[in-house]
Amino acid sequence: MNIQAIRVIYKYEMLRAWETILQSFISPVISTALYFVVFGAAIGSRIQTVDGVPYGVFIVPGLMMLALLTQSIANASFGIFFPKFTGTIYEVMSAPISFIEILLGYVGAAATKSFIIGLIILATAGFFVPLEIAHPLWMLSFLILTCISFSLFGFIIGLWADNFEKLQVIPMLVITPLVFLGGSFYTIDMLSPVWQTVTLFNPVVYLISGFRWSFFEVSDVSVELSMFMVLVFLAGCLITVWWMFKSGYRLKQ
């Protein structure tokens, strides 16, 4: 295994985040704090509790997921798209490095950044509301798996996109609506029966539900089903990336 290659890709991706610290770490924290102010304080003061959990506390897992998903995708997609855009990808393609090693470098760095952002948001939330985590190990498992699987998804978008518009279109037009409609700010039993059924086709519901369960033991679907769905998504992303590298899709002619 080309450990040196993984090390330098990971290091330089992390360095890029550090050099753009405002955009990488501060910006998601400010956005999340604003959500707390608007939904937690302003609107939350009119909604007392959801399933016995104060509304300001209830939205914490959803807000974390919102940030994790968008940041994982943005970090990973940009990480691989930019070398493609500038042409510097030739160096990676001509290096003695396998697709697994490329993934460990790029996706590993993107997932690490998202994980750090997740922890910072959790700490930020602690300033606004009293937080208790019922199942810390489950919470960490969901956190890590979400970071990895959505960084992989972002990596796929970065490989697929051949211009900046395509790079933005899926995060903006697909992921953001799915997260907002996936129960970030409500439970699905607040919806009409028809919409409850429709919502179950949204994969983000399972993520948020499982993650929320690890905090408050409150969920829309069983935690096992949530974990299963995360693993299925992870496997799907891995297979897709493997196929992209094997076929050279958008990488090799």
């Binding site: 080309n2 450990i3 040196q4 290659a5 090390r7 330098v8 890709i9 330089y12 360095l15 050099e19 500038t86 160096e91 990676v92 290096a95 003695p96 490095i97």
Partner: peptide, 17 residues
């Protein structure tokens, strides 16, 4: 664009193991 000459050489060397 933003890397230094030294860093980009270190990156290339590492990439090749």
């Amino acid at each position: 664009a933003f890397e230094t000459v030294w860093n980009t050489l270190c990156f290339s060397r590492g990439l090749f193991g």
